[in-house]
Simulated scan of single mutants.
Amino acid sequence: MTALEIAVQDPAGAENARAGGADRVELCSALGATGGLTPTLASVEATVATGVEVHALVRTRPGGFVYTAGEIAVMAADIVHLVSAGAAGVVVGALHDDGSIDRGATAVLIAAARQSGDVQVTFHRALDAAADPVDALRVLGGLGVDRVLTSGGARTAYEGRAVLSALVAADTGVQVMAGGGVRPGDIGALVALGVDAVHLSAKALVDDPGSSGPGGGSAAGLETTDPALVAAARRALR
Rank of each mutant, 00 (worst) to 15 (best):
M1P: 14
T2H: 03
T2W: 00
I6Y: 13
D10C: 15
D10Q: 06
P11R: 08
P11A: 15
N16R: 12
R18E: 04
A19S: 14
G20V: 11
E26N: 09
G32D: 07
G35H: 09
T40A: 14
L41I: 15
V44D: 06
A49M: 07
T50C: 08
V52G: 00
V52D: 00
V54H: 02
R59H: 05
R59L: 06
P62F: 01
G63L: 03
V66I: 06
Y67W: 03
A69N: 14
V74Y: 02
A76E: 07
D78K: 11
V80N: 01
L82H: 11
A85V: 08
A85H: 04
A94D: 03
G99W: 00
S100P: 12
D102P: 07
D102E: 03
A105E: 06
A113Y: 07
S116V: 02
S116L: 13
H124W: 03
D135G: 15
A136Q: 01
R138Y: 08
L140E: 02
G142D: 10
V145S: 01
V145K: 01
S151Q: 11
G152I: 00
A154W: 02
R155H: 10
R161C: 08
A162D: 15
V163A: 12
S165R: 13
L167N: 05
L167T: 02
V168Y: 02
A170Q: 05
T172G: 02
Q175H: 04
V176Q: 05
V176A: 03
G179C: 04
R183D: 13
P184D: 01
P184E: 01
G185P: 08
I187M: 09
G188D: 02
A192W: 10
G194Y: 08
D196S: 11
D196M: 00
L205S: 14
L205K: 05
V206D: 07
S211F: 07
G213I: 05
P214Y: 05
G215C: 04
G215K: 04
G215E: 12
G221M: 12
G221F: 10
G221I: 04
T225L: 12
D226W: 01
P227M: 09
A228R: 15
A228C: 11
A231Y: 04
A233P: 14
R234I: 15
L237S: 09
R238Q: 13
R238I: 02
